[in-house]
Write a protein that binds this DNA or RNA. Structure first.
Length: 467
DNA sequence: TCTGGGGTCCTGAAGCCC
DNA sequence: TCTGGGGCTTCAGGACCC
């Protein structure tokens, strides 16, 4: 999907269409998750500190991400992909690989183009958003093609042309080459993909180590045999928080770690998992990050056990000077068994007869009674109807009244405790047909049959929430 | 005026067992 | 009894991705 979060917000809010929109954390330490193409003109891009974005684009609209909303759109798109093939490998909310051969959805370049074009049309009809499609014989090339296709395009890399196409490209084009590896290669005089191939496999292994060296050399030759994997099992579950102000108080640090342990266990249980290795993460005032881990005798999803392990790990960490981030994770995962459940139930009753997992809910889940009017979130007013919060402060909240299919709406300001104003769910971006409230709004056609070895696609956009 | 959150994979050191 | 080495696991850190 193209600039996914920002595009979804623009589709949801007519007054933001054609305008610079930046989605990300709005606190003093927030970073940009996605910016609209209009904002990118000012140099705003993903992972940029929000403060810097505000300097570059002071008049942009700044919004908090609404993951539940994006997830619902993502599910619609993934549904379209699964109609093409049983082998769909989601990489994130807005990106996935599809093995078109496995779905017999195409068999040559022409049919692949047709399938890609139809997919893009279907995504547009069902979600109202644009997605880009890259078609190629392997995942690496499909990904590169989808990057080239953005925004709102389709690119095919024809078999036989791969090496010539890759040769002049920067090493940073290849997946797995980030800032550090890029610098490493540059210092060795390697700037392009062609120069990687020329350097030879032994030299790359010497420079980058075994796994990375072999993998990168293969990619430079356009070799990528990785299959599209539909079901990936989760390897770890973690939660972390960056604090607006460094925490110096050791007792407070301990309490935060306990809270994070509880949240982590909630997530773990939600996924039906338990784990053996508990990991504590601490980012200190100077941004240095350290982790401490402990492996238990067997898997657990008992909050008391995870809390205790996390507290023991914290004992071994020096936090003088302050911490800016704390995290708790669990790895070494297993599906939990019935015995585990009974053991946990007994253990919890013994250890925490009254304790409630009543810690601060996520921003999106907060009750309306809490009266936290979050910028960008939907609201409903008894008289003026559906709108969204444009800003709040000093006891006032400013709301723009508009819906995905309305004209840009008018702005009104209310007291934060106005009884006529309440939080609301996002409206669908594309109006449903009255006779089929569940189904797609437009006809989503099916794709031709039979597909060969050499075509796989990176559909639904490639890294499109990134610049 | 700095640098989120949730993951994956790899490497190297160290300890243990045989 | 001492030493060496291979193989495995654990732990910590780093790079990368979206």
């Amino acid at each position: 999907m193209d600039a996914f979060f920002a595009s979804a917000e623009q589709a949801s809010k007519p007054s933001l269409r054609g305008k610079a929109v930046v989605v990300g954390g709005l606190g003093p330490r927030g970073v940009v998750a996605t910016s609209s193409y209009e904002a990118r003109v000012f140099g705003v891009h993903s992972a940029m500190p929000m403060a810097q974005a505000r300097r570059l684009a002071p008049n942009a609209a700044y919004l908090v991400p609404r993951f539940g909303f994006y997830r619902s759109i993502s599910e619609q798109v993934m549904g379209l992909l699964r109609a093409l093939s049983p082998l769909v490998e989601p990489l994130s909310l807005d990106e996935a690989f599809v093995d078109l051969e496995a779905g017999e959805a195409a068999w040559d370049e022409a049919s692949a183009r047709l399938a890609g074009a139809k997919l893009r049309a279907d995504i547009r009809a069902v979600t109202g958003l644009t997605g880009s499609v890259g078609l190629a014989a392997c995942k690496m090339l499909a990904k590169i093609a989808s990057e080239q296709a953005k925004p709102d395009g389709l690119v095919v890399i024809e078999p036989g042309t791969e090496r010539a196409m890759l040769a002049p490209m920067s090493v940073r084009t290849l997946p797995g080459v980030g800032p550090a590896t890029g610098d490493h290669l540059r210092r060795a005089g390697i700037h392009t993909v062609d120069e990687i191939a020329e350097a030879g496999e032994d030299e790359l292994v010497r420079l980058l180590g075994n796994a990375h060296g072999h993998a990168l050399y293969a990619m430079a030759l356009a070799h990528d045999e990785r299959p599209v994997v539909a079901e990936r099992e989760t390897k770890s579950v973690s939660v972390e928080d960056t604090y607006d102000v460094d925490i110096h108080d050791r007792i407070r640090v301990g309490l935060e770690v306990q809270r994070l342990a509880d949240r982590c266990v909630q997530r773990l249980r939600g996924a039906g998992l338990s784990g053996r290795t508990i990991v504590l993460k601490v980012r200190r005032y100077d941004f240095s990050t350290l982790t401490r881990s402990e492996t238990l005798r067997g898997p657990t999803d008992d909050p008391a056990v995870v809390r205790e392990a996390a507290a023991r790990l914290l004992d071994s960490v020096d936090t003088t000077g302050g911490v800016r981030l704390l995290g708790v994770g669990v790895s070494g995962l297993a599906d939990y068994t019935q015995e585990d459940l009974f053991a946990q139930a007994a253990g919890e009753l013994a250890e925490h007869p009254v304790e409630e997992a009543a810690h601060a809910p996520a921003e999106e889940e907060k009750a309306p009674a809490e009266r936290r009017w979050v910028a960008g979130h939907d609201v409903r007013h008894a008289e003026h109807g559906h709108g969204w919060v444009q800003g709040s402060g000093l006891g006032r909240v400013t709301v723009r009244f508009e819906t995905p299919d309305s004209e840009p709406g008018r702005v009104r300001t209310f007291r934060v405790d106005d009884p006529d104003l309440e939080a609301a769910d996002p409206l669908p971006l594309v109006a449903r047909r009255p006779d089929d409230p569940e189904g797609p709004p437009a006809q989503a056609s099916s794709v031709p049959a039979s597909f060969p070895k050499s075509w796989s696609g990176n559909g639904g956009g490639g890294a499109t929430s990134r610049p």
